[in-house]
């Protein structure tokens, strides 16, 4: 049974629990719920994590911005074409430290999602992000990015306006920015769309976030011409936070409560804030040339074909 199905059954049980008055029956139902919970979350599959990473009740970039930072001022536009709502960016304070924040914007309702294009940026979004990163470099502000996107938007206009060029430019420029960059994958890290904001000194990931070369559905449909085999693909793809940590791509994991993060989660913001403080203290002490050199080496060593 998939996590999604189990969750439905738990919701059903909850309903029955609230309508039951008989003590014995109530205990029985509660026991059943406990069993289901431990069964479902004790043995969580990669595809279950994909499901959790995409859940609409999961905190989005705006939650992190407003709960970790103060004085956030959003800045808009790429100065070339338009403002892409799928990417949010601006300046804020991490306690007393001014920082630049950039992230993919997902919505929590269908209307919000239509507005933010489900977190799928167009070239203008990447160009806005690059403009804000260059600005951060000018004013020596560290950059914090929040990754949460199914991928770059595969549309007619996005191709016409140079989606490939925009992503490539970001990869190239981020590699040599002279300020610390920390990228945090909070939900879906989809393909080039995620990478274009995550060439960083540190890559962190939440326990139920995923980061992959493309969606499991896309992977299955290219490989087996059958998108319904996404579950199988997810296992093969090694896309969970644990897989990536083990592979040395991700530097730090943040645990999540049973069932994943939701609107009630609080501790995650405190933990991320503390981690940002301690890591920025380390990164800010480095001279900019060393910082860029170490970032180069970080990516240089991935897949360098040397014997392990």
């Amino acid at each position: 049974m998939s996590l999604q199905q189990t969750e439905e059954r738990i919701r059903e049980l909850d309903k029955r629990i609230s309508h039951t008055e008989d003590e014995d029956r109530l205990n029985e139902l509660k026991k059943e719920k406990k069993r289901l919970l431990s069964e479902a979350y004790g043995n969580i599959s990669s595809f279950d994590r994909v499901y959790l990473a995409r859940k609409s009740t999961r905190p989005c970039v705006r939650d992190y911005i407003y709960r970790i930072f103060t004085d956030f001022i959003e800045l808009h536009g790429d100065r070339l074409m338009r403002d892409d709502p799928a990417i949010i960016g601006g300046i804020a304070k991490l306690d007393e430290i001014p920082v630049t924040i950039i992230g993919h914007c997902k919505g929590k309702s269908i209307n919000e999602n239509l507005k933010f294009n489900f977190g799928m940026p167009n070239p203008e979004g990447y160009r806005k992000a690059l403009r804000l990163m260059k600005q951060a470099e000018k004013f020596k502000r560290p950059i914090i990015t929040f990754i949460d996107t199914p991928g770059a938007y595969p549309g007619l206009e996005s191709e016409m306006h140079g989606q490939g060029e925009a992503i490539a430019r970001n990869l190239m420029e981020m590699g040599s920015l002279k300020v610390p960059i920390i990228a945090i994958v909070i939900g879906e890290g989809g393909s080039g769309g995620a990478l274009a904001l995550s060439v960083a000194d540190r890559i962190w990931m939440l326990e139920n976030a995923v980061y992959s070369i493309l969606s499991p559905e896309g992977f299955a449909s290219i490989l087996w011409k059958d998108a319904s085999r996404a579950r199988e693909a997810a296992e093969l793809m090694k896309l969970t936070a644990y897989d990536l940590y083990e592979r040395g791509i991700v530097d730090r994991l943040f645990g999540e409560p049973v069932g994943g993060l939701d609107e009630k989660s609080r501790s995650i913001y405190v933990r991320i804030k503390n981690a940002l403080h301690s890591e920025l203290a380390i990164l800010s002490r480095q001279n900019p040339r060393t910082l860029v050199e170490l970032r180069y080496k970080k990516y240089r060593s991935i897949g360098d074909c040397s014997a392990k």
Binding site: G175, L195, V199, S212, R247
Partner: peptide
């Protein structure tokens, strides 16, 4: 595009090659 069989490592080659070109 990126090679699916090597997963995330393929994706990271995009950053690696772009950074080398930057230098």
């Amino acid at each position: 595009g990126a090679r699916m069989q090597e997963g995330i490592v393929s994706l990271m080659q995009m950053a690696k090659t772009s950074n080398a070109l930057s230098r």
